[in-house]
Write a protein that binds this DNA or RNA. Structure first.
Length: 632
RNA sequence: GCCGGGAUGGUGGAAUUGGCAUACACACAAGACUUAAAAUCUUGCCCUCGAAAGAGGUUGCGGGUUCGAGUCCCGCUCCCGGCACCA
């Protein structure tokens, strides 16, 4: 929970919320209730100690040991036995579903409310869970909906001890519990206290009287890490008849998964019948013993596999601290949103344990997380288990790997879910052909061109514009890939560059300035195009690159860098609005200041026409973007 | 029920900090080239009025803030994901 705070910059809020909910930290109090007539007390957990005076009964989980114990010797004993038996028969899912009917039985016992000394009956009911809190609750029907439902069903007392502001509740008729903060009433000296203060005061009192104490509870459940299946890391434990469970000593690790097994459909792991795997010696007494045949949940391995990447050649340890400290944390982690809780939470737990052990020094394993959306096919998440996967091989065969890759990346940004459709494959293939054709048109012309000299200033407008486009495209593509992770818009930017090259081709024929420098500008544009395209369509890019005479593969060429100066225009477009409506667009020199732009706008005949019968009240100038004239 | 995300043309989507809504594509239609087809190229392509210039409207629905809202605020509808008797 602490770590979540530090991740807010790099992780999607949604994932952090899901993890927080899963951990489910809640503050409250544990309170002891003395069992009437016995030397025994029952501890309950409550988040609402301020409602303690309204506790009119107590409910134990059917699995709670006292459910059975307390009912012995009372006339309820038989009913309780039946009840426990029935609940155990019920399956877990329907029992823990909110919709399930609340069933319960009186145990025959009473406890004493520690604050007002009142005797209250102890019940057992299916809606109380043994594995949360203490497995026992104090029921305050007036202020908890579940308790109210239960009280109404079994005719139990309802008592209002929290009043809403400017309203009052009727314990006899209320059907909706008042479960938010309010003012304490019918609570002796605590009357009049509100919300957090009320809870704190009650806690203080309980603590002082040794009746209870403030507590923190978590919803997080235990994680059973063993699986009765073959594929998984063997659990390094030996069962010895004399010594019990003995861990395999370090010098015998790792226990390897035997590969010569027959995988059948017998419904159980082949390890359980493989004598050569099972039969071993006890590491302690050397007598014959048996290996554990359960394997570890695959989440165990996925919780730390990335540390191994930091020291892949180390054969003495899983990873080396020096290497791990150098590489970790992972700068950018990409995974499906479906791993938001389990995998990503377990990895964080492992990391925290490694940190405690002094094996790593970073706080968190993954600094930045991108959760890619799911691909939907036929209304369901595309997955191997559902069998609704689309094999990219089909597109690769018909259109090639470059088209397949480009198409997938162009379809939608990675964070979004995507309804699969192959509509548009054609267009991506067409785009690559367009790239190839324009390249073919110019390759002879630019093959021998040198690079643009530092101090070159193109005379022709077309050449200047081409350079500008090329450098702007570097910026757009770089930002889209590196910062925004939006590959579809990166590809769109490249498409725009290619479209520009096509219109440039028509101008090139009539261009007078076909000097070496002009050819150098053209070559620069193609160099840039190829480099920007290379992550999306590596094969065609590599081919063009080598046809230009480069010998080094693109994989070793550094990413292009744009020149800020070259991305600037001499003129800029200013949108002119009158009362918020776009009326005109004008070009002004980039260097023009606010006053100059204002003057230019007011002088424009079209704008004068628009404002002639009106009084200009205000003029808003957004530098480099627009002017809005407010007139009445 | 609670938490989170979303809704933009016929379709996928763009709009980066509140500043030209519909970039880039797909599909479709018309035309050019062709004996013909494919490929390619050109043009059109949110809605209404208009021959056009242009005018008005439009980002699920209803309000609000603002000179200005797809973007911010309030209320709703629908869809998706997570959690679901957690005391």
């Amino acid at each position: 929970m602490e770590g979540c705070k530090g991740l807010t910059k790099g992780w999607p809020e949604q994932v952090l919320t899901m993890q927080s909910n899963w951990i489910g930290k809640s503050y409250g109090a544990e309170v002891d209730f003395q069992v009437k007539g016995k030397d025994e007390s029952i501890r309950v957990f409550t988040t609402r100690p301020d409602t303690l005076y309204g506790a009119t009964f107590m409910v134990l989980a059917p699995e709670h040991p006292l459910t059975f114990v307390l009912s012995r010797g009372t006339e309820q004993a038989e009913l309780v036995d039946d009840f426990i038996k029935n609940v155990k028969r019920e399956d877990k899912i329907s029992r823990t579903s909110e919709k399930g009917e609340k069933e319960g039985v009186f145990t025959g016992a009473y406890v004493v409310n520690p604050l007002n000394g009142e005797d209250i009956p102890v019940w057992s009911a299916n809606f109380v869970l043994m594995d949360y809190g203490t497995g026992a609750i104090m029921s305050v029907p007036a202020h908890d909906q579940r308790d109210l439902d239960f009280a109404r069903k079994y005719g139990l007392t309802v008592r209002v001890v929290i009043e809403p502001p400017e309203d009052s509740l009727d314990a006899l008729t209320m059907t909706e519990a008042f479960s938010v903060d309010g003012t304490m009433v019918c609570s002796d000296s605590f009357d009049g206290l509100f919300g957090n203060e009320a809870r704190r005061k009650v806690c203080d009192y309980l603590e002082k009287k040794k009746l209870g104490k403030p507590t923190v509870n978590y919803r997080l459940r235990d994680w059973g890490v063993s699986r009765q299946r073959y594929w998984g890391t063997p659990i390094p434990i030996v069962h010895c008849d004399d010594c019990g469970l003995i861990p395999v000593p370090e010098n015998q690790l790792p226990v390897k998964l035997p590969l010569d097994v027959e995988l059948g459909d017998r419904g159980r792991s082949p390890l359980t019948t493989l004598a050569e795997f099972i039969e071993t010696e006890c590491p302690k007494c050397n007598k014959p013993a048996r290996r554990e045949t359960d394997t570890l949940d695959t989440f165990v391995c996925s919780s730390w596999y990335f540390y191994r990447y930091t020291s892949p050649h180390n054969n003495r340890a899983a990873f080396d601290k020096y290497d791990a400290d150098y590489w970790m944390p992972v700068d950018q982690y990409i995974g499906g949103i479906e791993h938001a809780i389990l995998h990503l939470l377990y990895s964080r737990f492992f990391h925290l344990v490694f940190e405690d052990m002094g094996l790593v020094k970073s706080d968190e394993p993954f600094s930045n997380l991108l959760t890619q959306g799911m691909v939907i096919k036929d209304g369901a998440k595309m997955s191997k288990s559902k069998g609704n996967v689309v094999d990219p091989e089909e597109i690769i065969e018909t259109h090639g790997a470059d088209t397949a890759r480009l198409f997938i990346l162009f379809a939608a940004p990675p964070i979004k879910d995507l309804e699969w459709s192959s509509q548009g494959v054609e267009g991506c293939s067409r785009f690559l052909k367009r790239v190839w054709r324009i390249f073919e048109d110019f390759v002879e012309e630019i093959k021998t061109a040198k690079s643009v000299s530092e101090d070159y200033e193109a005379g022709a407008k077309e050449l200047r514009e081409l350079r500008r486009m090329a450098h702007v495209t570097i910026r757009r593509v770089t930002e889209d890939i590196q910062i925004r992770m939006q590959f579809n818009t990166a590809i769109a930017a490249i498409m725009e560059l290619v479209n520009h090259l096509y219109s440039f081709r028509d101008e090139w024929t009539s261009l007078k300035e076909k000097s070496d420098e002009a050819r150098a500008v053209l070559r620069e544009a193609f160099d840039i195009l190829i480099l920007l395209l290379s992550p999306f369509a590596p094969h065609i890019a590599e081919e063009m690159w080598s046809r230009l005479g480069y010998e080094m593969s693109l994989g070793f060429v550094s990413w292009p860098v744009f020149n800020e100066v070259l991305t600037q225009t001499e003129e800029m477009l200013i949108v002119v609005q009158v009362n918020g409506k776009v009326r005109h667009r004008i070009m002004v020199p980039t260097s023009a200041d606010e006053e100059a732009v204002k003057a230019r706008v007011l002088d424009d005949p079209k704008i004068r026409e628009q404002t002639k019968d009106k009084e200009v009240r205000k003029i808003i100038v957004v530098p480099g973007k627009l002017v809005n004239i407010v007139a009445k």
